[in-house]
Design a protein around this nucleic acid. Structure first.
Lengths: 123, 123
DNA sequence: ATCATATATTTACAGATGTCTATACGAAGA
DNA sequence: TCTTCGTATAGACATCTGTAAATATATGAT
């Protein structure tokens, strides 16, 4: 065996990197979701009938109205929800395409790398 | 039409809520991923041969070694990567099952709700 | 026009986060 | 054992984030 070298055995350069613009976009989406309040909000909007207004959210979260508005803004700016005004009410719904993108990202990292298992066995 | 009521038209209570423990777990995973540095790290670990040591990461990020170590700790504590020590080197690899869980969460929100479309059409 | 109500914005502040420097730990070699 | 090298931890500091109070905006009703 040739284990005399004091350097690590990492492979050198990855082939299939994500483009920076994708990283940026996904990180913004992930940041928006990485909050118990906002994750529950999105889930509530989706499973609470598809369209939900701020007043409905106020009943489900022990938060002030401005705080709820703030979280909705974060979700909207990340492209996770869309908002529609009807009279004085504003209804929010989940932008499912954003979650399709996120699902694809997670799938990209959710498969055991058979190639590496094989490579290590050979080496 | 009976639009005289000054209340919003939100559906009342959602049926299919995520349990709190799931929310907590997913939020920790999402927080760990919601950083350009850490998202790229995970991607680099996965596509950089499956197993990567800190030294390799240092070459790809313009960050101090302690900072890299810190980010790896966050990823490890969130269950997104696993670490294996071999001599002085520590090799990190992606825990694909965590990303399977995250993918399932995203899938949960990535389908257009046909039921609601239909319901709105009827109403 | 005035008023009430639903939602948004501004401001302020406490707590979390990302980064570095300095230091410590631990394994391998001299 | 002493040194070196890879990695981890501790401390410090600037920035970002979540929240509420106060205020603003805008729509519908009277």
């Amino acid at each position: 065996m040739t284990e005399s070298s004091p350097s690590c055995s990492c492979a050198t350069a990855p082939e299939d990197r994500l483009p920076d613009s994708t990283i940026e976009n996904r990180v913004e989406q992930l940041k928006a979701l990485a909050s118990p309040v906002r994750l529950q909000m999105v889930d509530l909007i989706y499973y609470g009938g598809g369209e939900v207004c701020v007043c409905e959210l106020q009943e489900n979260f022990d938060l002030s109205q401005p705080t709820i508005s703030h979280h909705l803004k974060v979700l909207r700016e990340a492209g996770l929800i869309q908002s529609r005004q009807e009279g004085t009410f504003v209804y929010h719904r989940v932008d499912t395409s954003a979650f399709t993108d996120l699902s694809a990202l997670m799938d990209r990292l959710s498969t055991i790398r058979e190639a590496d298992e094989a490579a290590r066995a050979v080496a």
